[in-house]
Nucleic acid binder design. Sequence first.
DNA 1: GGGGATCGATACCGCACGGGTATCGATCCC
DNA 2: GGGATCGATACCCGTGCGGTATCGATCCCC
Lengths: 288, 288
Amino acid sequence: MDGVETRELRYFVAVAEELHFGRAAQRLGMAQPPLSRAISLLERRLGTTLLERTSRAVTLTGAGSVLLREARAALDAVEAAERRTRRAALAETGRPGVVLATKAGASGELLAKMLDAYAAEPDAVAVDLLLCGIGEQERMLRDGRADVALLHLPFDSTAGFDTEELVTESQVVVLPAGHPLTTRDQVRMSEVTALPGLPLPRWPGPDGTYPDGPGPQARDHAQLYQLIALGRACWIAPESCRAQLREELAAVPVPDAPTVTTVIAWPPHSRSRAVAGLVRAAVRHCTS
Amino acid sequence: MDGVETRELRYFVAVAEELHFGRAAQRLGMAQPPLSRAISLLERRLGTTLLERTSRAVTLTGAGSVLLREARAALDAVEAAERRTRRAALAETGRPGVVLATKAGASGELLAKMLDAYAAEPDAVAVDLLLCGIGEQERMLRDGRADVALLHLPFDSTAGFDTEELVTESQVVVLPAGHPLTTRDQVRMSEVTALPGLPLPRWPGPDGTYPDGPGPQARDHAQLYQLIALGRACWIAPESCRAQLREELAAVPVPDAPTVTTVIAWPPHSRSRAVAGLVRAAVRHCTS
DNA sequence: GGGGATCGATACCGCACGGGTATCGATCCC
DNA sequence: GGGATCGATACCCGTGCGGTATCGATCCCC
């Protein structure tokens, strides 16, 4: 009758994600029968059924969906405990450092200046950059792979983190050089979404799959810029990306696109000296 | 070499809190030797020493302090997963409901009106009140005993929660009826802190111990008001407490005391229909 | 409609690991 | 220096986790 073990949660998450005991067992590197047993034991301990199984299909019950969400969060917290402890140990007997997660290819000069400003502080420690794919920073921060991150509202969610706003910028549309619209000094959102032959590409979601719908698929900025240069897509991006555009690309302001706010975020209750210093340097740099 | 188990974290937290293997083992209902062994196993798996032990004293290392903080959070998350799953199961096969945590004796009429407003909604479910001691709401929300809470800034921390501001009010000083200051229409903070014979009482912290220093000790509002009525203490409280004051007490505004903001808070990613409805009702009620 | 395939549940077994007792060794105090 | 305190070590036992073999139900297809 006492507490749930992380092993059980890992098992449950595997089954809930696969919706298939056999595959889940394979993923976990174990046989199927003990997995079935562990899940039913978990169900008995929680006093509820988590999965509705017929011999042809496995589906989540309401309680199961709740547990899937909560178990993921709990497992992230346990992993974070493990990782942060290991990092703290390294910092004690070697070079301390913080891991800063940021979207690959975003916030170029802000990042550089912020790191310079922090490095100039007297008690600055090494900052390791962790370049993330779209929306990965959240996870990195949550499971302890990163200590602090740059997020971009409204795309990323800051739920559960402490944050400070850094900069807000308007957006531009990135087009192939020579496109008729590049002669304009601004365009409207409605024009962008209706561009013939230049749809907005689709990005893979957190689960690695692409959303349904039209438009080409791109996995990172290199692919994206390639697509645009080839005249197969366009893209809405923060103004600051203009500094990094290749020759074959051009950007035109879109005043009525939602503004993008860059925030620096860190897990609550873990404001180490280093993270605090980094945050301070970033805020000081951006408000001066 | 795979993940840490919650059992190990529970063991570590017990030892780290007691700083004594024998007592920790007793608290865990087990013998001391297996506990020692489990801790050293944990240390080997994390690749670092967590506790510095001599035969006379046990102290936390830096990594140990980090793990203590992180392990508490992780254990709360695991407990929350357990509790929320159980609640979800109950809600499926019976009467659904949300648990609202609030400071005992605070936000009286706000709470009542908010509950009325919510109850009038078409899909309202039962709201169970969980009256908390000072600062307990945070924990209740974090470990899943509550689904939503009323917090009072700047006293409570909203770190890690989603929140909406409800009302901001100024504060008053609560005095025994007949006290000379009760004839004034306002007093300054500096006058309150210097009141001869009427110190501010001390509250127990989250760990149950009283902070050092002068002043009487009180564990709840009843004791507090008793102390004030007896002329042994005074107290700074939000304006709205005036509605609940006993006859022997009087309140005088303190314009330069920090204002108190009541917020409604809930754990991120768990915005159920019921919680969302409650938040909406509260916000709508307070901004209209 | 029956045979095969799929897939989760059950039965049973062996061993690793968690927990218990006894004891050691170090440290501090009188 | 002797006793007391307290964590570590040594050793043993039983539980429980994970493995293999098999069953039973469901679906599909000829």
